[in-house]
């Protein structure tokens, strides 16, 4: 089954990107912007309008969003800020502009084992014998994971070609 390639411009428009009136609520509330001043969601939204998507996709900062959804919750114009970042990520990866290590790590784990055991720092390894033993001593059942299903799904959308 073919996966439709999204029209990124339309998608971003659908998420109300053009409605932003630059009030700065997002940047003011952003936990990342609090620490790293390079990241400014308001400015990124402005640059989407002024420079266009192609330029924004090349910006390193766009990857700094930590997906906490706080800006989206507070946005007075109902701009789906976090979801706009998602669309930018999808497009940047699809176009081969960036292959972020964080996602490559997660992808590898899930592709090969069906799950990713490493929420912390994006590393992942299959459930090791040691863990399984420990579970057994604690009286916890052995998890049954259908490894191949994840692989099949990832291949069906072609994500393996983009991140592998």
């Amino acid at each position: 089954m073919e996966v439709n390639v999204l029209d990124i411009k339309e998608e971003v428009k659908k998420l109300n990107a053009l409605l932003c009136y630059q009030c700065g609520t997002c940047t003011g509330t952003c936990p990342v912007a609090r620490i790293d001043t390079r990241f400014n969601p308001r400015r990124i939204l402005n640059e989407l309008k002024i420079k266009g998507i192609e330029e924004v996709l090349k910006m390193e900062e766009i990857w700094y969003c930590i997906e906490c959804f706080l800006c989206m919750e507070k946005c007075p114009q109902n701009v789906k800020i976090t979801e706009i970042f998602f669309k930018l990520y999808e497009e940047a990866i699809r176009r081969g502009i960036k292959k972020p290590q964080k996602y490559v790590g997660l992808f590898k784990a899930i592709y090969s084992t069906g799950i990713s055991t490493g929420a912390y720092g994006g590393r992942g390894e299959p459930l090791s014998g040691m863990i399984l033993k420990k579970r057994e001593t604690m009286g916890l059942p052995k998890p049954k994971i259908s490894q191949d299903a994840a692989k099949k799904i990832i291949e069906s959308t072609g994500l393996n070609k983009l991140l592998g």
Binding site: G24, T25, T27, G28, A33, N40, R42, R43, K74, P76
Partner: peptide, 24 residues
């Protein structure tokens, strides 16, 4: 800039967080 957050301090004064969008 539109204020994003207000916190109350122990002396009941308030801390207001806002991005000055002109300065970024």
């Amino acid at each position: 800039g539109k204020v994003s957050e207000i916190r109350e301090n122990p002396d009941k004064s308030l801390t207001v967080i806002v991005e000055d969008t002109l300065l970024g």
